[in-house]
Structures are given as C-alpha cells and as structure tokens.
Nucleic acid binder design. Structure first.
Lengths: 161, 161
DNA sequence: CAAAAATACTTTACTCATGAATTAATTCGG
DNA sequence: CCGAATTAATTCATGAGTAAAGTATTTTTG
C-alpha cells in the first residue's frame, strides 16, 4: 500500500465520498430514465405496466407454470404483491390459477393462450425499446459496463448477506 | 461503416438485443440492491425513508427555501406526491411552509432547525453507506463507470425529449 | 378592465409495494 | 396418530407514486 503524495488524507477521503455519491446518483438517474420510458411505452402501447410484464415474463420462461411462492421469489417481491397482480391478470384472462393436485394450499399459475399471445407481442417490442434506449453505448462500452456492473453486483450481494 | 465478416446479420442483431437486455437487467439489479440497502438503513437507523431524505436533501441544498413546484421538478415526481411528503414532514416539525408575500397561491418550504439537525446526521451516515456500497469498484473503475453513465444519460435525455 | 389562460397547489382515485396478521393445509416429532 | 411447527396464500393497513380533476390566484390579452 503506497500513500500518494497528497497533503491531506482527509481531502482524499472527501474526494472518495464525493465520487461514490456521483456514481450512485448517475446510476439512479439512468435507471429511472430507462424505467420511465419503458413504463410509458408499455402503458401507451399495451395498456400494461412493468410489474405485470415482469410477472408474465417469468411465466413465459416457465411454461409448466409457477407457484405463487415461486413468483414471489423470482420477482423479488412479497407474496401479497403477487396475489394482487395475479388477481388482476386473471380477471383479464391473461393468466390462470390451476389447482395443485398434490397440495391443496397451493396452485400453479400459467399464461393463458391469450396471455401468451399478448406477452409475445410485448416482449418483442420491449426488447427493441431497450436496444434503442441503450444505443448511447457502443458494443465495447456495453461490454465494459457489463463488467463493471458485474463487479458491483458481486460486492453488493456480499454486503447484503 | 464496415460490416464485420459474420455469416448472418440476423445473428448479430439477436446478439445486440441480448447484450442490451443484459446491461439493462444488471443496471436495474444493482440500482435495486443499493436502494434496498439505503432504505433499510434509513428505516432502522433514522426511522425515515428515501423520498423524505431526498426532499430534505433538496431543502438542505437550498437554505433559502423552495416552492412546491421546485421540489416537484427537482425530485422528478408529481406535485401531489410532494404535497403528501411535505404534509407529513411538516406534521413532524421537520419542514415548514411559509407564505409567499408575493404570490398567495404558493409558499416557500424550508427545513426547520430540528429538520436541519436531523438531516445533517442522516446525510453524514448516508454518504458513508454509499461509499461502502460502491466499494466493489476501485477508483479507476468508478471513473470509468461515471464516464459510461454520463454517455448513457446524455443519450437517454435526448431520447426522452 | 373583464374574460380567458396559465400557474400553484390540493384532492381524489388508482397502482404497486411492504410487513404483519390470518386462514388453511401439510409435515414432523414424540 | 396427535399436537406443534411450517408452509402457501390471502387480507389489511400503510406509504409512495401517478394522472386527472378541482380550487384559488395571478397574468395575459382583446
């Protein structure tokens, strides 16, 4: 560990704090801008929302169906939240609750054919939106960003226990 | 514009989509992890929340006070939201609404001395939390990240009109 | 100057998220 | 096999956000 030739260590500490805050605020700003765009477009083009899209995306990835508890874990939200989202999607005929013959406490949630059709259309557009929103970075920059975010994520996962 | 020597353009397009999605999902994950940590710590250490902290931070940065509309713009949230947050902070004696002598429709919101004291304590801890959470990146990586996020932000601002 | 437009804020109704309490069904230890 | 603990899902109260409608006060303009 070499100490750089700076006069005041406290100055370095201040600079480090400032830098970390700047990175965090930019991170937050960029994420919020992208999210806002996706929300708006999902709303105006499909009269839907991000949470609903995310839930349907999980069901799309698991055609055999998922239990409410699985959805809760995969979406990283509470069970009560999944109940509410599923209720509304079911009302609209986009997903279906099927009794689990093995366990009468639980059931399996699946996309209906109608839900699958709607999701396919949404997913296709959604991907293109994301490509467009991230077009500010070229290929090399995206790779760099991914590397940095992976490092950050690893550290955060460790911190979060 | 040179076309790389790849067999199928459609393959490139698919790869590009996949890469953009991956970057976006990592961005989202990292932001959510940091936010969750900050929320939890703000809650357990100060019995407060991020929106309240952010509002108070803006008032701290503007000791002369801000109008509701300023807060709405700076926090990038709707006016109704600012009304609710301000109501609660005012109830708790942390901020104060002062009549604007020039315009009876509006008023100036300021931190009370009590609010200023509480914010000072929170801000100090908050900064150290962020430093710790971003400690997964060293100095050079943080600079790199900042550069990439700035580029991304510039593009997003342009897209969002 | 009076009517119309714009502005500042609040209110209302809705979505989405949480945590805690509840209900019902399953599993496990004795 | 029975009571205790666990698990699956829902319900309820609360907080934060939106969009849209409402109120009151400027400001603009014909």
């Amino acid at each position: 560990m070499s100490t750089p030739a700076t006069a005041h260590p406290s100055t370095d500490a201040r600079a480090a704090e400032h830098e970390a805050l700047r990175v965090w605020l930019r991170l937050l700003t960029c994420t919020n801008l992208v999210e806002a765009q996706l929300r708006t477009r999902l709303r105006t083009n499909f009269d839907s929302t991000l949470p609903r899209f995310d839930l349907m995306a999980q069901l799309d990835r698991h055609p055999e169906g998922l239990k409410m508890s699985d959805l809760s874990r995969l979406l990283m939200v509470t069970g009560g939240n999944v109940t509410g989202l599923t209720d509304k999607l079911a009302e609209e005929g986009l997903v279906e609750r099927r009794d689990d013959p093995r366990d009468r406490r639980s059931f399996t949630v699946m996309l209906t054919p109608e839900g699958q059709r709607q999701f396919d259309r949404m997913a296709h557009e959604h991907e293109q939106w994301v490509v467009g929103l991230l077009a500010g970075l070229d290929h090399a920059e995206k790779r760099q960003m991914l590397k940095l975010l992976d490092r950050l994520k690893a550290h955060l996962s460790a911190v979060s226990d």
